[in-house]
Design a protein around this nucleic acid. Sequence first.
DNA 1: ATGCCCCTCCTAGAGGGA
Length: 268
Amino acid sequence: MRLATWNINSIRARADRALAFLEREDIDVLALQETKCKDAQFPREAFEAAGYEIATFGFSQWNGVAILSRVGLDDVEPGFLEQPQFGEVPAVEARALGATCGGVRVWSLYVPHGRALDNPHYAYKLAWLERLRQHAVDWVAADPAAKVALVGDWNVAPRDTDVWDMAVFEGQTHVSEPERAAFAAFADAGYTEVSREFIPDERKYTYWDYQQLRFPKNEGLRIDFAYTSPALTPLVRGVTIDRDERKGKGASDHVPVILEIDDSQVSA
DNA sequence: ATGCCCCTCCTAGAGGGA
């Protein structure tokens, strides 16, 4: 099974790119972030015609997550239990969507950005990650055989080498110690960030700003990751970053991360 | 060329992104 995650930065602006990606990379399950549309606005028809079932979670132009699958799509959960809220009138945001696809419990995650270290969004980000981590612990405690994939835009650069110039990011979000600790806590819980296992090299980024020739100069960030539960980790045969997807007119500022999973042992 | 910001929405300037 080939499972991909991609912050697409508007599914309506890039439905054609998404369709081409699914076909080119032979993708079975695609977790999307920043779909930037309400459920009713999601361009379902083209993906259904290509053989995918679709679950969406979006209710405004902000955020939005989705899962497309051609290997089953069951037990859809928009958001996780007691997901931290944000806003003047606190509300759950469309940043997490769970579904079981081909025997794998997939969570498409768009972790809050944080904005600035002294911004309320930053405390929200840390609380959001911690609540998710508690669930991640509970899921494998309840069922050690659970095959869980926590994939998406984590908005954390775990290492100094995951940003193109630490001097630029010093004192900003994504690189602070509490964010890195919140990210690392998933590994303490027994999950493995498999992109690092297969791609340990430096300067292997998943995001490049649209401005100032960041992509041609390979000045990017590595912030899109895939944590897998203990039962799923040994089934991951490979991980790739589809860097070429950043090329050309109309690219998202993020590229897909693709997992090859041995599903010969996984019942659909 | 991988190429000099892009998405959204009460269409026009602002909010959000990282």
